[in-house]
Design a protein around this nucleic acid. Structure first.
Lengths: 221, 221
DNA sequence: ACCTGAACACCGTTCAAGT
DNA sequence: ACCTGAACACCGTTCAAGT
């Protein structure tokens, strides 16, 4: 068959199929051969569109980050220089969108958590958060730290379900060994509300703690 | 050669060598054959000690979690039932030890973050945190959420360096695309202090926010 | 330019054979 | 019980060959 008149593949089609396989079967089970079969081509065909599997994974990761809403960081008329007070609301909305985008694809989070690298959507995200915080009145060093700690919290919460990490088998929790885990086998059954509640509690606690620090900032020149 | 008079391998030796390879070369590059070579045996020998590679990884993960200090959760005479006020200090010390243990082995964090499973050290850790918070006066549902959100934050902070995720190459940060990242190429050079500062800032913000919530708790019966 | 089959150097794991 | 070599069904990637 060799080269068809109209290409069988495109980067977009490959990325979409790869993400679906990663979601459904895990990162470890994704192979270039399996992915090619899914796309009805032979294994080496993918190398016409991506130099390596890593480059393909990078594209998958950036497509996920592209789903994060950044519109809340758009400049607000008159806020710059006035000592912003809307940054907590913006961070809250962003963190929720960020977590939702990642939690929809938990198997890819370990790759994504390695940092932005040269991926455009990841760099755009870092730029938007940092820029907003600085314009709201945070010193640059503090703004960097807030960007970092928010990523720690969001990626940690999207990496895996806390509740689902506890086996539903009650026999695991021998009272002699783990005196306080007698109800832990019920956690997995309430997976959604436990993880959602933990995320919201942590997010609000973080924002409250940061607001305390913002109020203590020396007045700017 | 067949069976030697004294065994060449033990679970402990295998786990130690595996952790060293994971630290030095990454999780993906760890293969049973490479590990066996490192231990001067043939590939299949490992299967006399672990049923699968996953079981071996589980043992590696639990050995790392075994390094986390839990002594700050030991019962304090007279605190139970009195409305503890030392839980923030205990959580702070624990979070630092937890992060230190994980950050020493970042490549294994994605495995570990999947939850305790049936690993004894991970279950002991969950038991200690939850038990301490409940005895300090937190309602059980809240204590669960705090255990979860602390794990989110700590695993997120240990998974990867925030600072090192930004390429040190200044040309990546085109001002037209990323107007606020002009200094981002310097981040990797300050990797230690940026990540440490972000972790400490986030930890203190979380503890402050949780203390506000603790103060608002209705008086217990 | 874009696809193919054949090939190379790897994997995790099984199993019969040795002591 | 604990190690070995041979084998099976996989990997990621390269490359010459086809249109």
């Amino acid at each position: 068959m060799a080269r068809p008149r109209t290409p069988l593949l495109s980067r977009e089609r490959i990325v979409a199929a790869a993400l679906r396989l990663i979601d459904e079967e895990g990162l470890d089970t994704l192979s270039t051969r399996r992915l090619a079969t899914e796309l009805s081509v032979s294994g080496p065909s993918l190398y016409n569109h991506f130099a390596t599997k890593d480059e393909l994974l990078d594209a998958v990761v950036d497509s996920v980050i592209g789903e994060v809403d950044l519109s809340m960081f758009a400049a607000v008329e008159g806020e710059a220089g006035a000592g912003g007070t809307r940054w907590p609301e913006a961070l809250r909305e962003w963190a929720r969108s960020y977590r939702a985008a990642l939690a929809a694809h938990p198997n890819i989070v370990p790759v994504l958590a390695q940092g932005p690298g040269r991926r455009p959507n990841a760099l755009r995200l870092a730029d938007a958060v940092f820029g907003h915080l600085v314009e709201a009145g945070w010193p640059r060093g503090q703004a960097t730290r807030i960007g970092a700690l928010m990523r720690y919290f969001v990626t940690g919460s999207a990496l895996a379900s806390f509740a689902a990490g506890f086996p539903a088998d009650a026999e695991v929790y021998d009272a002699a060994d783990y005196p306080h885990l007698g109800e832990a086998h019920r956690l997995a059954g309430h997976r959604g509300s436990v993880d959602e509640g933990a995320f919201e509690t942590g997010l609000e606690a973080l924002l409250d703690g940061l607001a305390l620090r913002f109020a203590r900032l020396p007045a700017r020149p």
